[in-house]
Amino acid sequence: MAERTVLVINSGSSSIKYQLVDPDSGDSLASGIVERIGDTTGSITHKVDGRKIEIDEPVPDHGFGLAEVLRLFDEEGPRLEDANIVAVGHRVVQGGRYFSGPALITDEVVERIEQLVPLGPLHNPAHLKGIEVGRKLLADVPHVAVFDTAFFQDLPEEAARYALNREVADKYSIRRYGAHGTSHQFVSAAVAEKLGRDDLKQIVLHLGNGASASAVVNGHAVDTSMGLTPLEGLVMGGRTGDIDPAAVFHLVRVGKMTIDEIDHLFNRESGMKGMTGESDMREVRRLINEGDQNAIDSFNVYIHRLVKYVGAYTAVMGGLDALTFTAGVGENDSDVRAALCERLAFMGVKIDLEKNAIRSSESRIISTPDSSVTVMVYPTNEELAIARQAMTLI
């Protein structure tokens, strides 16, 4: 057993993802997910030692779900009593202007996270449930909140401030907060270490069902695509990304839609799902192979948005040394990588198509030696990043 471990909890509105991590070696000792919390049918999957234990049962609430997780640890291993847990790390999406790094969870910190719910209405309430239940069930170890927004806390004012009336913007805390910061920080630091340089101008593309881009100079974020909420920026599985805000006014006035209906439309029923009927890029690729014109056009919209952001961030940084793909689509979809890099050929970007086609869980360089930009695939590990950030406070 590891000398010390951290239990990482990512509590969503209807799910709990968890992982027991050795922060020193980076090994995952066990992981799992509780799904469809509050539905008539629920499921729990627990993975340990190459085994997968699956339970189908109703999960009425987060308290029941996390209690079941602790039972599975006890019965299937590794026993938490023997796991030398030194902290529980909780992912929290919205930390506002208050949290520039991890925070030891106290009643005051919980209260502050509650105050930030208006800025993170889809995420922070679920994180609060996970924190509340976790602190009750695992009361003997410190709990640490790690914030998605922390890495972007010190964005330059020119990148963080919207051109909204200053008085209104400041009164209602409207600015660019970013998200996926834990992933962007982990990957950008790992790339700098792998390339042996701390003076990099780099772009990290976190491409999953949610997608975001960041521009990082000398280890510090100077811009990021997600904004006040994770809705802004790139085309995503179910989210629009960038869209003229007047579309909201139009849908209210002409479409007679409510704000809640538009919120659901933009966040859940748009992006690739809204354009093709499929949020999973693998399914979109299947449709493309069948000659589906909607899927072909939608894929081009997806790539076009990426090209715009890479070009803009290269200009913002005054150059580009490294371009890194991470997360589900970024790590596994060679077609997305190839299509984007082909569009960046004018910048001197060249990739080795054979290396790009390799499926691997290892970090790797896929650009050619004469490419003007080092192009990499680097698997993100947000759980390890959360565990290591939690350790800094223990």
Rank of each mutant, 00 (worst) to 15 (best):
182 T>F: 10
159 A>G: 12
189 A>L: 11
299 F>V: 05
270 S>N: 06
57 E>C: 06
35 E>N: 11
149 T>R: 09
353 L>E: 14
388 R>T: 13
111 E>C: 00
327 A>H: 04
53 I>P: 00
165 N>G: 10
136 K>C: 00
289 N>Q: 14
31 S>E: 15
25 S>F: 08
120 G>F: 03
12 G>Q: 09
314 T>G: 07
83 A>P: 02
16 I>S: 01
392 T>A: 13
100 S>E: 13
181 G>H: 05
345 A>C: 02
268 R>A: 11
206 H>P: 08
294 N>C: 00
128 L>P: 01
308 K>A: 07
164 L>W: 08
239 R>A: 12
37 I>V: 12
292 D>K: 09
288 I>E: 12
335 D>R: 05
257 M>V: 04
114 E>K: 15
80 L>A: 03
198 D>R: 14
6 V>R: 01
215 A>Q: 06
389 Q>K: 14
42 G>D: 06
234 L>W: 02
140 D>K: 13
286 R>A: 14
258 T>K: 14
28 S>Q: 10
372 S>K: 14
354 E>L: 13
307 V>Q: 11
185 Q>S: 15
12 G>L: 03
5 T>V: 10
95 G>P: 05
234 L>C: 08
326 T>C: 07
265 L>N: 00
270 S>C: 07
121 P>E: 08
292 D>N: 15
226 M>T: 02
382 E>T: 08
13 S>G: 07
276 T>N: 07
389 Q>S: 13
269 E>R: 13
243 I>N: 02
279 S>W: 12
252 V>T: 12
302 Y>I: 04
19 Q>G: 05
85 I>G: 02
371 S>I: 04
222 V>Y: 06
164 L>Q: 10
279 S>P: 09
301 V>K: 10
111 E>H: 07
145 A>P: 05
344 L>T: 02
2 A>N: 12
275 M>P: 01
3 E>R: 13
362 E>I: 09
125 P>M: 10
130 G>M: 03
168 V>L: 15
375 V>C: 00
69 V>S: 04
14 S>Y: 06
129 K>T: 11
21 V>Q: 11
70 L>Q: 03
312 A>K: 04
183 S>V: 13
362 E>A: 15
385 A>Y: 01
195 L>A: 07
89 G>V: 08
